[in-house]
Computed example of a mutant assay.
Amino acid sequence: MTDFTQRFLFDDTDVRGELVSLEASYQHVLAKHAYPQPVAQLLGELLAAASLLVGTLKFEGLLILQARSEGAVPLLMVECSSEGDVRGIARYHAEQIGADAGLAELMPEGVLAMTIDPTQGQRYQGIVALDGFNLAECFTNYFVTSEQLSTRFWLSADGQRARGLLLQQLPADRLKDPEEREASWQHVATLADTLQTEELLGLDNETLLYRLYHEEPLRLFEPRGLQFRCSCSRERSANALVSLGQADAELLVEENAGSIVIDCQFCNERYAFDAADVAQLFAGGGSQAPSGTRH
């Protein structure tokens, strides 16, 4: 398994952690568009962050991360479901992107929106400025400003593999004294700060954790799989046409030489609807059977 998250828990302190590894799904995302290396790196880090957050937030539904700016990268967007389905996309201006450009150069004065869309219950969105040195620092700042449990992120991607590490302080259980809790938290976070990019990207989880915490008793749990899966479908595209109303849909067919083509920006799948398809939709005939007029 190349794409998975894996939780771990420190036995003697109130801190949990999670690691994520993305290879096949990350490559699938990158294969859909010819991203410059700095953009591919940012997109990989955002995919890793979303995968870590889904497990941390403990909900059923969809997590959507959107980073926006007026710079060379106006949009990064990643989705990860509670079932482990991931997809992502970026918008960029290639002529403005240097070979070694970082977050500040690519997305100046940007904002990061995190949307939780649960299967049941109300949608929630939080927004924070992209004012960190990198995406990991931005996510750490998000948890600071939202006054949730202390949480730290370490994220890396190189166009081939995306990896991430999350540490989170748990409610007081093993350590009741506030000073002891804080000292313990700072200890495990400081050790994680020694982690090099090459180690995060290149080591398996057992080796990585041993290098960081070989003096700390911890438990590593079974991995949970991740995979690229796009939520687009012919039916969803048809529903978008129906929402326009019959007159506008028929006008679109006429204006587009007899066929409306809806492109999925995430996976490049194309869904075509001609006049017979549109008539079938509004007659209640459904969207699954393409008309016999299409070539």
Rank of each mutant, 00 (worst) to 15 (best):
R219D: 11
R219I: 13
Q168N: 09
E179L: 13
F228H: 15
S69Q: 08
E95T: 10
P118K: 01
L252R: 12
L201H: 11
G44P: 09
L200T: 01
A272E: 14
T140Y: 07
R294N: 08
L149W: 08
F282L: 11
G292D: 11
H28A: 14
R7V: 10
V73C: 06
L195P: 02
Y92I: 00
Q186E: 11
D193P: 00
L165E: 07
P118Q: 04
A162P: 12
A162Y: 03
M114V: 15
F228A: 13
P171L: 08
A257Y: 10
R163M: 10
A247N: 10
L165F: 09
F8N: 09
N141H: 13
V242P: 02
A279W: 02
D85C: 01
A283L: 09
E199Q: 15
V78G: 07
D3L: 07
D14T: 05
C80Q: 13
F8K: 09
A272H: 12
D263G: 06
G292T: 07
Q37N: 05
R181Q: 15
P171I: 02
G164M: 11
Q37V: 07
G285F: 01
V111L: 12
Q288C: 00
R181Y: 06
Q280K: 08
A101K: 05
R87Y: 05
V54W: 06
E70Y: 07
A90W: 01
Y142H: 11
L203M: 14
R236P: 03
A238W: 04
S259H: 03
M77G: 06
F143N: 00
T56W: 04
P36I: 02
D12H: 15
A49D: 01
S150D: 14
F139S: 03
F139E: 02
L212Y: 10
A275G: 07
R16T: 14
Q280N: 12
L112Y: 02
L218S: 08
L244Q: 12
L200Q: 05
E216I: 13
G110I: 01
D158N: 15
L42M: 12
P118N: 05
P290A: 05
S146V: 00
Q96M: 10
R294Y: 05
S233P: 07
V261L: 08
A162W: 02
D248K: 15
F8T: 09
L53A: 07
Q96L: 15
E215H: 13
L212C: 05
M107A: 10
P178V: 04
E206S: 12
L244W: 10
P74M: 06
T5S: 14
L165N: 06
T5V: 15
A240H: 11
W154V: 08
D12C: 08
C138T: 15
L241M: 08
D177W: 03
R181E: 11
L30H: 01
A279V: 11
S243D: 09
L43C: 04
T207H: 07
G292L: 13
E105R: 14
L281A: 06
L251C: 04
R161Q: 14
L65V: 12
A94W: 00
I260N: 00
F8D: 11
Q6I: 12
H33S: 12
K58R: 14
A238H: 04
Y213T: 08
E206R: 09
A283S: 15
P38M: 03
E83R: 11
S291L: 03
Q27C: 03
N134A: 13
G17M: 02
